[in-house]
Computed example of a mutant assay.
Amino acid sequence: MTLISPACRDALQLWLERLGGLEDASANTLTAYRSDVSAFLAFMTAHSGGPQGLGALARITTADMRAWMASERGSGTGARSLARKLSAVKTFYRWLAEREGFEPAAVLSARAPKFQRKLPRPLAPDAAKAVLETVELQSQTGWVAARDAAVVTLLYGCGLRISEALGLTGADAPLPPVLRILGKGRKERVVPVLPAARDAVDRYLSLCPHPQEAGAPLFRGVRGGALNPRQIQGVMARTRAQLGLPATATPHALRHSFATHLLEAGGDLRAIQELLGHASLSTTQAYTAVDTTHLMEVYMRAHPKA
Rank of each mutant, 00 (worst) to 15 (best):
R84L: 05
R203F: 04
L281S: 07
E297T: 14
T134L: 03
T77I: 07
P174N: 11
P246I: 11
F40Y: 15
L123H: 06
L179S: 01
Y33W: 09
R121V: 03
P229W: 15
G266Q: 06
A196T: 06
T77Q: 08
T250E: 02
A97H: 15
M69L: 12
R238D: 14
P113G: 06
Q212R: 14
S206W: 08
G55I: 12
S35A: 15
T260Y: 04
T239G: 12
V190A: 12
I162T: 01
S109Q: 14
P113C: 03
H303A: 08
V135M: 01
V152H: 02
V89N: 05
I162V: 12
I4M: 15
T29L: 00
T288P: 09
D126L: 05
E23W: 10
M69C: 13
E274N: 00
L41M: 12
M300A: 14
A58R: 02
S206K: 14
A279D: 08
A226Y: 06
V37Y: 12
M300E: 15
W68Q: 00
T260S: 10
I162G: 02
L276A: 06
A106H: 04
A105S: 11
P177C: 10
Q285A: 09
Y156P: 01
N228Q: 10
T250H: 01
S71I: 05
T141M: 06
A128M: 05
A39K: 13
K85E: 06
R73C: 13
A105C: 07
A97G: 15
T153D: 03
T45G: 07
R80V: 07
L281P: 14
A171G: 15
E297C: 05
M44G: 09
P6G: 11
T45Q: 09
L41C: 08
A42F: 07
E23L: 10
Q242F: 09
M1N: 12
L218F: 12
L179W: 03
L30P: 02
A39R: 11
L276I: 04
P192D: 06
E274P: 00
P6M: 12
A197V: 01
K90D: 10
K114T: 07
S26G: 04
E264A: 13
A56I: 11
T284S: 03
L19E: 03
P120Q: 02
W15D: 01
G49V: 10
F115E: 01
R73M: 14
E23T: 09
G55E: 13
H303M: 12
L16R: 03
V190S: 11
M300W: 14
G53E: 01
R203Q: 14
L137R: 15
Q212Y: 10
E100Y: 08
G215S: 14
G234V: 12
G55T: 07
L108E: 15
V135R: 00
G277C: 00
H47G: 08
A67D: 09
R186P: 05
R34Y: 05
A105L: 10
R121N: 08
R59M: 09
A265R: 11
A214N: 03
D172E: 02
R117G: 08
R34V: 01
P209C: 10
L295G: 13
S26R: 07
M69H: 05
C208T: 11
R270V: 11
R186I: 00
P246N: 06
